[in-house]
């Protein structure tokens, strides 16, 4: 038996919003420690890795590890049926071929349940090596979303350069070029408004703006986004999911032919 109850169904809605641009379907691996999802987009350029810890749920029970393959379009349809203030419970029997979503209104006067068919997905898990990154940048998630949106008007690629002074985002294309420089915040009153850079060595990498834009669909999950970069390895874009977990996106760089 698997059962996970979340008082804020809006978290689940936001998580889905954050992954459905990149993935059509995904396997939710449920175990005693929580729910994990790891999937690459069809082109194998980006990877989504999400973790929701069991202790972050209001109730969590998982007697046996289960992997639930879900069509994210169908899951989106179902979660649209939940009001933001509803309590959501996901339930499945061991070896089940369906999952049930139960939505309860805060006053318990309306209770709905939706059963969804599960899919058998061939899944390849990737081993992601633990990496010490040369640069780790934290900035307001809304600011990052704005930068990705603004620069994607110029070109298909965004160059991210990180030095100890700050971080620079650049793009160039047919209409011209654009550079956005963010300096490290000198005095930090509010952490969620700060730009911070932890740098071992400066890094400049080029990425496809289309993917960066897709990652920013997670903006509503967190005030802060963290970018981790090292020369010639995939970028990691991380958003915390409240007190319950995180979503990380990995993006392979573009390199000189």
């Amino acid at each position: 038996m698997f059962e996970a109850r979340l008082v804020q169904s809006s978290i689940l809605k936001k998580v889905l919003e954050a992954i459905k641009d990149l993935l059509n379907e995904a396997t939710f691996d449920c175990s005693d420690s929580g729910i994990q999802l790891q999937a690459m987009d069809n082109s194998h350029v980006s990877l989504v890795s999400m973790n929701l810890r069991s202790d972050g749920f209001d109730k969590y029970r998982c007697d046996r590890n289960i992997s639930m393959g879900m069509n994210l379009g169908s899951m989106t349809k179902i979660l649209k049926c939940a009001a933001n203030e509803d309590v959501v419970t996901m339930k499945a029997q061991d070896n089940a071929d369906t999952v049930t979503f139960v939505f309860e209104s805060p006053n318990q006067e309306k209770v709905s349940d939706y059963e969804m068919k599960l899919m058998n997905l061939d899944q390849e898990h990737l081993g992601i090596p633990e990496t010490e990154y040369a640069c780790v940048v934290r900035l307001p998630a809304g600011e990052f979303a704005r930068i990705c949106r603004d620069l994607s008007q110029f070109g298909e690629s965004v160059v991210i350069s990180c030095t100890k002074e700050g971080v620079k985002f650049s793009s160039a294309g047919d209409i011209g070029s654009a550079n956005i420089k963010l300096a490290q915040t000198s005095n930090v009153d509010k952490e969620e408004l700060a730009v911070t850079v932890e740098m071992q060595e400066p890094v400049t990498l080029t990425f496809a703006s289309r993917y960066l834009n897709s990652f920013t669909k997670a903006t509503s999950l967190s005030n802060v986004v963290q970018l981790s970069m090292s020369p010639d390895v995939p970028l990691v874009v991380e958003y915390r999911i409240g007190e319950i977990g995180h979503i990380r996106y990995y993006l392979a760089p573009k390199i000189e032919d």
């Binding site: 090596p129 990995y250 390199i255």
Partner: peptide
């Protein structure tokens, strides 16, 4: 000219 790398070149399937 830059070309897009695939994650397969960095991470191994387990």
């Amino acid at each position: 000219r830059k070309s897009q790398m695939s994650l397969d070149s960095y991470f191994k399937v387990i």
